[in-house]
Nucleic acid binder design. Structure first.
Lengths: 230, 230
DNA sequence: TCAAAAGTGTTCTCCCTACACCCATGG
DNA sequence: CCATGGGTGTAGGGAGAACACTTTTGA
């Protein structure tokens, strides 16, 4: 049996993609992790990911992994870095291209296949396999940067959401508190959210207005080169 | 003679680093390009770069390439993306990890070795080899993003510079015009620049005050978590 | 003396911030 | 009726934007 049939003149590293999947439960930012079933780092938690196929781009690879692990298609993903320390994988030299994904948590049924998958609040993520601790830190940093200029947050919310949910999301990502009224004012001022006629079922105390993301207006603003700011 | 002696169970892509080197000539943002001497894309211009060694991280590889091509050590570099379209290199599958470097143009003696190297103003960069056009667009986009929050611009200027030079740099990067007085006010307000007692030789019409970057104050601001804004 | 670039301060506006009271609903 | 969360407006301050004239020096 031929074991090592792919040969090159010079050494080549292996290349993987890893996907930091963020979700939002209405209160806290969550990350989807998978418990490793094999060595190395067996039993540790890690991001879903895997080797890149030779006929796919890194983005396609990341989307494929995402689909395989969560069943999600068409989620928002963005590459945020490539991690390449020579000894980051004990088996062989592996370079990973890292993406973060923003998913609507209620669309993820939970680890649908073999792998043990679980959501963790960002505060109580356990120690991770490989250099995934560092990868997570950089993913969060990138997400924080992004949300200042792009309304990526909407990717994490359901179609319809309350102003409080939106605010909680921003607060969870940026780890700061906003004044309720000022936050709503700013959001509405940009016309990025549209108020619907519906309200929440009065399941809490009082029914709250529902909003949806106004993509048209966002595209319009972007086209004009407007710089948002949060 | 054994040609292909590095063998793997699964196919591995080749991995390179490429370095988009930015400089500033006092008026326009410049990029350092190298004319390719071999196929593919012989005669086209491209960024300096090369294959990653197996014992170095991507950042080390990029710094090594930078040193080999320009003689520069210790320049500011930042990774901004990994490009992985399966057919981006006609020879074999090659993934490139892209960095941009900010260098003081007067420190670069010019292509010191074999390669034909030349500075191009951003406006008249010719069509580039591989997918380097796209890489350049993304490098510029990242630089623009960065300069809003980090005083990366100082990496491009000499130790001592005039307020006008600094303003021209910001204008070149962001492609907008500022009011001279407001710009100086904002810069001085953050205490990011310190005025020196020296002035330029009155080579233009009137001598201008010289400034230098106040790194201490910047670190101080950063430590306190201050968010700059330009 | 003229042209070209440098130095300098004020006003106005707008946006961000801080802040408090009433309303609706379920228990 | 009370507790909880939702809705709403205003006043003040600070930062950014607009803006013009004088100075220096070389040609």
């Amino acid at each position: 049996m031929e074991e090592n049939k792919y040969c090159y003149k010079y050494p080549h590293p292996a290349v993987t993609t890893d996907c930091v999947i963020f979700g939002f439960d209405g209160t806290k930012l969550q990350v989807l992790l998978i418990e490793r079933g094999i060595e190395p780092f067996k039993g540790k938690w890690a991001f879903p990911g895997g080797f890149l196929n030779m006929d796919e781009s890194a983005e396609q690879g990341a989307l494929r992994e995402l689909r395989e692990e969560t069943g999600l298609t068409g989620a928002f993903i963005e590459q945020f870095g490539c991690f390449s320390e020579p000894d980051r994988d004990p088996r062989e030299r592996v370079i990973t291209i890292a993406y973060y994904a923003l998913v609507k948590i209620q669309h993820v049924v939970g680890g649908d296949d073999a792998a043990k998958a679980r959501w963790f609040a960002l505060d109580d993520v356990p120690q991770l396999a490989f250099d995934h601790d560092r990868i997570l830190r950089e993913a969060v940093a990138r997400l924080r940067e992004r949300i200042h200029f792009k309304p990526v947050g909407f990717e994490l919310l359901p179609e319809k959401f309350t102003m409080r949910e939106l605010q909680s999301l921003y607060e969870a990502i940026l780890d700061i508190k906003f004044d309720r009224r000022n936050f709503a004012k700013k959001m509405l001022h940009f016309d990025l959210v549209t108020q619907l006629d519906e309200t929440t079922w009065p399941t809490a105390r009082r029914a709250a207005n529902l909003f949806r993301f106004n993509k048209q207006n966002y595209d319009e603003l972007k086209r004009k080169g407007f710089q948002l700011e949060f």
